[in-house]
Design a protein around this nucleic acid. Structure first.
Length: 575
RNA sequence: ACCCCGGUAGCUCAGCUGGAUAGAGCAUCGGAUUUCUAAUCCGACGGUCACAGGUUCGAAUCCUGUCCGGGGUACCA
């Protein structure tokens, strides 16, 4: 059994809490005792603001309170504690302790990421595109953010079930079936099936708006489908299959895979019993021919659970889905990743779930819509950018750069690197900003390959891989692990400190449901490494120092690789 | 009308459960390559944190109001 790695932040926070409890028992327990990384490195490695908060409550001098911490027995890994400004407690670690922590992390496969999710199942519901509609760049966010959360939770030891809740059931199928019969283009269905299905849908939808007879016919087709008509059912299955084939191709390119792919249709049989249950609980009333949950009293408007034509809508489907998932998997939590427009829906739906006694914690992770600088995307405007077009463009641009920088490399390898770099660039762009801000799409930003970008991080990784190859070449048979880690240079110490903070970054990213927290950390780490790389020699250093630095490179590489993997970004050994 | 987001450097964004001099990237300008991958590094320039009040030792951060932008508000999801 390996010794568990505990971060300095955690150790220091417990220490500070203890000092508070011993010396200021009269203080309110809510006073935060947290120790955080210094905002400014000239003040040390960690800082604590407890003294100022305590002094405020106890109406005493904050610097005097801070002095108590300075005088208390320090943890053995602390070099010094200083008091500054209005009452900051600044903590500097022993460099030898930092080195020891790096060695512990090097010896641990998970480099210190804790196992928080023991025996807990989390279902993450993401991507969830609609059948018969091509994925455009607006769909990438749920897929990429959801997939990163999926990876983060797995890394923290949760049992994750990734479920792609396809929009494969609904009123649009009446229109599609009718349109398909009337004006499908067999040739187009073979070459670009989903695009053709969408064309059929849009045309049929437009007809339905001006032609009442068409509308009635479409409705009749839908009813037939829902009643299990063989022909319509077969058509529907074809549509689903054609669409899934295409989605699978995109998921494969994105490195995304699901444990389950259960569309709305999967829960179809349970819908009427959901209504029965809601009735039983006295939660529904009739209004204008529809059945609704009136949530006005809770400030959540009204949710329709059965339409006046007898059909069900997504509130009902979602409730049925939760109940089915709860029965089958007993998850501790279900996380939904969708765009911001669905906030009200999820509030309503979570509220109803609570009222009917669903025990599972339900979380809605929403993200801002992606838009163009001049307008929002809309099929009608014809300004949608197909997801595949974006991926193709990214790979093409990356290939140009690879060809320019590695002209001697064979073509297959150039393409492979361009693929990883191009896709990495797109994912990183999306994941590196706060999900909840609205995103303005520009090609320039989406395909950024320098500065704060995916390729910058991949480049840092590839340089390390190259250094390690060179080391093995020049010093065959030597094992750096037989030498201790020693930190001498300023850039080296700074890098070391950043390395020890990886587990905290992973934890925070998952807890806040924001992969951008991890992306920020990794960029910061890469910058620290690049600076180290540029200013500190390793292969030319003396024996011992050289091995120590190679080990630091190794830990940086592992951290980047694992970290980028949590963002779903690959790390080629050479770029 | 009501509800939810957002407004920080020329551009794209961090920072927002109050803390020290508001940070990155891009762009612009100036440097670094006989040396471990220059997709890099080092430096400079650049801000009335939308606006007005308030809370306090301290506000980009919390409260109130205003302006601007996006989204939502019963049979689409």
């Amino acid at each position: 059994m390996k010794k568990e790695i505990i971060s300095f932040e955690t150790l220091l926070s417990s220490w500070s809490a203890e000092v508070t409890a011993t010396n200021f028992p009269e203080a309110h327990s809510a006073i935060p005792s947290g120790v955080i990384p210094s905002r400014n490195e000239e003040f040390g490695d960690y800082q604590c603001e407890t003294a100022m908060k305590l002094a405020k409550e106890l109406k005493t001098n904050p610097r005097a309170v801070a002095l108590t911490y300075k005088k208390a027995v320090h943890p053995d890994f602390v070099e010094k504690i200083e008091i500054a400004g209005p009452g900051f407690i600044n903590i500097t670690l022993k460099t030898t302790a930092l080195a020891a922590q790096l060695e512990a992390m090097l010896a641990d496969e998970k480099i210190g990421v804790p196992n928080l999710g023991k025996n807990q199942t989390v279902i993450i519901d993401y991507s969830s595109p609609n059948v018969a509609k091509p994925m455009h760049i607006g769909h990438i966010r749920s897929t990429v953010i959801g997939n990163s959360l999926d990876r983060l939770y797995r890394a923290l030891g949760y049992n994750v079930i990734a479920d792609n809740h396809l929009g494969d059931w609904g009123t649009q199928f009446g229109l599609i079936i009718l349109g398909y019969r009337e004006f499908a283009d067999a040739e187009a269905l073979k070459t670009t099936p989903v695009e053709e299905l969408e064309r059929i849908y849009v045309k049929s939808y437009n007809l339905s708006k001006e032609d009442e007879i068409w509308r009635e016919r479409a409705k009749a087709e839908l009813v037939k489908l829902q009643q299990g008509d063989k022909e319509n059912r077969a058509l529907w299955e074809t549509f689903v299959e054609l669409t899934l084939n295409e989605f699978d191709r995109i998921y494969k390119r994105l490195g995304v895979s699901f444990d389950l792919c259960r569309g709305e249709s999967f829960y179809n049989d349970r819908l009427s019993s959901v209504i029965d249950l809601l009735k039983e609980k006295g939660l529904v009333t009739e209004s204008n021919g529809a059945l609704v949950c009136d949530l006005e009293a809770d400030g959540l408007n009204i949710a329709i659970v059965r339409k006046s034509d007898g059909g069900y809508n997504y509130t009902t489907t979602d409730i049925a889905t939760v109940m089915a998932r709860t029965e089958e998997f007993k998850p501790a939590e279900i996380i939904y990743v969708t765009d911001e427009r669905q906030q009200l829906h999820f509030k309503q739906f979570f509220h109803i779930c609570k009222k009917i006694g669903v025990p599972t914690r339900l979380t809605h992770v929403w993200f801002g819509l992606m838009r163009l600088p001049e307008a929002t995307f809309s099929t009608r405007e014809g300004n949608v950018i197909k997801l595949e077009a974006l991926l193709n463009e990214a790979e093409a641009r990356a290939l140009e750069i690879v060809k320019a920088s590695s002209p001697g490399m064979d073509a297959a390898q150039q393409h492979e690197i361009a693929r990883a770099v191009g896709i990495g660039a797109i994912k990183y762009t999306d994941l590196s900003q706060n999900p909840q801000s609205l995103v303005t799409f520009t090609w320039e930003k989406a395909l950024a390959m320098d500065g704060n970008s995916g390729p910058y991080l991949q480049y840092a990784y590839a340089r390390i891989a190259s250094v390690r190859d060179k080391y093995a070449e020049k010093f065959p048979g030597k094992n750096p692990d037989e030498f201790p880690v020693v930190l001498t240079e300023e850039q080296e110490r700074r890098l070391a400190l950043k390395l020890t903070r990886f587990p905290a970054a992973v934890e925070a990213a998952a807890k806040l449901a924001r992969p951008s927290v991890l992306a920020d950390y990794l960029f910061d780490l890469s910058q620290a490494y690049s600076s180290f790389y540029q200013n500190v020699p390793f292969l030319k250093a003396d024996e011992g120092v050289r091995e120590s630095r190679i080990r630091i490179c190794t830990l940086t590489a592992t951290t980047l690789k694992q970290g980028l993997d949590l963002l779903g970004i690959e790390t080629p050994e050479r770029i």
